[in-house]
Design a protein around this nucleic acid. Structure first.
Lengths: 174, 174
DNA sequence: TTGGAATGTCAACAACGCTGACATAAATTG
DNA sequence: CAATTTATGTCAGCGTTGTTGACATTCCAA
């Protein structure tokens, strides 16, 4: 049996949401929605010398102030060379500040500067505005389903990080 | 009032799903889920000389056999130079075939070859497997909400194309 | 017949992934 | 204390995929 087959003999209404047709629509919905999802911040970033990678770094530093470089590497899932290129430009432009860890002095704890916080705000305001309008249009039940499906779609490791977000801030002092 | 504020004076349970905290979680869920969503095809494609752009082209040609280059440009939202680079390699490797339109001979109607269909199958089997498992874990109600929110998140133009998918196949013959 | 649409192509560039190699400082371990 | 490991930074090079700009061809349509 091919990977695309679905067993529908068990009932009429039970598994119809698992047809290949429906799965394909879900796949395309992800594709188009992700484009919309990133388009507003992308528009803001173009013109400045930044891109989506800078947005992600700034987002997660804002979310977890004092996070370390290694921590950010885990969350973003890129190489340190790639992240370093991004962080360097953020340092150079005074958007992000790195403080040496006081417990482990090898670590750099990352913080947004005033200027960095302003950029983060402008990016996330735009992105939240779209999300809010989508949420409002869809209603709370749909939103709950949305989040449930997205969590189920993540890799286990990604899901772990997603759920750990709220405890991962490390308050490092210089 | 900042763009991040939410009016919660109207009730207790009504608008709590619109808090900035919830919106932010939705944003991060999109980020992590999209990574999972693309990871399986990406794994297959690396090693072959293809990337995500080839996947998209092959996907939409499969979905709408006989679609034209211009049509594909609209759907994918990239420049013709960018798409052309991708299509050329797909032609060269005999994955996609272009037939001159018989009504308008400037148009090229695109079709997957046997080989192209095989690649498409392998990519979409992988992606559907993840989607199916997420759908199954979440259940039909959640899936409906998932789709509703994604559609609300698309740009109007993207939503139009998403919904038109099923009538957009043009059966052109040489 | 002329204008514009659909397509292809060349060149150059930018963003952002990757690998590999090497350096440094500091923590940890034997 | 010496050796090893960890956290980080950096240089060099490469691949994919997006961009602009310019130009050519073919062909429909007014």
């Amino acid at each position: 049996m091919g990977a695309g087959m679905v067993d529908t003999k068990s009932g009429d209404d039970s598994l119809l949401f698992l047809t290949d047709e429906n799965l394909r629509r879900g796949i395309e919905a992800m594709f188009f929605a992700y484009r919309g999802f990133t388009s507003d911040p992308d528009r803001i970033l173009q013109g400045l010398d930044y891109g989506r990678a800078h947005h992600r770094a700034v987002h997660f530093i804002h979310r977890a102030p004092g996070t370390t470089v290694g921590n950010l590497l885990d969350i973003l899932g890129v190489t340190k060379q790639s992240l370093n290129r991004v962080l360097r430009s953020l340092f150079d432009d005074d958007l992000v500040e790195a403080r040496v860890g006081h417990k482990d002095r090898r670590e750099r704890h990352l913080y947004l500067t005033e200027k960095g916080a302003a950029l983060e705000r402008s990016l996330s305001d735009a992105q939240r505005a779209r999300m809010r309008s989508a949420y409002r249009a869809a209603g709370p039940v749909a939103v709950a389903g949305f989040r449930t499906v997205l969590e189920a779609m993540m890799d286990q490791e990604q899901r772990r990080q997603y759920q750990a977000q709220y405890q991962s801030a490390k308050v490092g002092a210089p």
